[in-house]
């Protein structure tokens, strides 16, 4: 009998941790699924997307920061996510689904978030998680997060290999590129959000503009177009 007791202790410890993990999994909260699309069609990297009969392009990279998630009801904030920084990467499907544990049974009618990283965070020194500078979303030659990395190929682009490259960021006045998005949401279920790049590629002529790699007026203008590309997807 004495031999058994320590083994039982071990087993008990194991079972209780398992139970804890299961309990945590059950309590998953509200999920918000971001789906980058082009004219309503899910974006697949490196796949040709047609703008018109003669014009197409392919995306090679689409990564962007969403931050400062806020849930509102009748114009009042009912939940503000703490340490709210998320790097979404089309290459990594899991990164497109955000979970808000505290919002599980929350009554809200609007969701608000930033496309990009705010100025205060930008000047606050090194951070971890999705903000770690090893994520490839931080400029080294001039401090600042790259809010959006959008890269690909288009026959129209006169650049080498017909590439286009938009690294949108910048936090110094007057070229703050961070954009706030606020959307009205249907009640009481997990959310599906679309980010439709069609307006972006209709408004940006890749023959003339194929590369932005630093903060400035253009980065701000393109960030605005992208911020307007978010919408609630309803089946």
């Amino acid at each position: 009998m004495k031999k058994v007791i320590p083994w039982l202790l071990c087993l008990g410890a194991l079972l209780s941790t398992q139970a804890f993990v299961l309990w945590q999994e059950k309590n998953i909260g509200l999920t918000v699924h971001f789906q980058p699309v082009f004219q309503g069609e899910k974006i697949v990297l490196d796949k040709a997307l047609r703008i018109s009969e003669k014009d197409s392009f392919a995306l090679h990279t689409l990564r962007f920061y969403l931050s400062h998630f806020v849930f509102l009801k009748n114009g009042t904030v009912v939940l503000e996510e703490k340490n709210s920084y998320h790097l979404l990467d089309v290459e990594n499907e899991n990164s497109l689904i955000l979970t808000f544990e505290e919002a599980q049974n929350l009554d809200f009618d609007h969701i608000q978030f930033n496309l990009g990283i705010d100025s205060l965070t930008q000047i606050s020194g090194a951070m971890g998680g999705d903000l770690d500078p090893t994520k490839g979303m931080f400029w080294t030659w001039q401090s600042g997060y790259i809010n959006v990395k959008l890269e690909g190929f288009s026959a129209k682009s006169p650049a080498r290999n017909h590439a286009f490259q938009f690294h949108l960021g910048g936090y110094l006045a007057p070229f703050q590129s961070v954009q706030t998005v606020k959307l009205s949401v249907p009640k009481g279920r997990n959310l599906q959000l679309q980010m439709d790049l069609a307006p972006f590629f209709e408004q940006v002529d890749l023959a003339k503009k194929h590369s932005i790699m630093s903060p400035g007026e253009e980065a701000v203008a393109l960030s605005r177009i992208l911020a307007n590309s978010f919408s609630i997807y309803e089946k």
Binding site: Q122, S124, G125, A126, P133, T140, S143, G144
Partner: peptide
């Protein structure tokens, strides 16, 4: 160009005439 001491090292690490590497 660099706004915080924490971020300073990123510049020489990445610069092609300095360390030519990446974090």
């Amino acid at each position: 160009a660099v706004n915080h001491l924490d971020f300073q090292a990123l510049a020489p690490i990445a610069h092609p005439t300095e360390m030519d590497h990446s974090i």
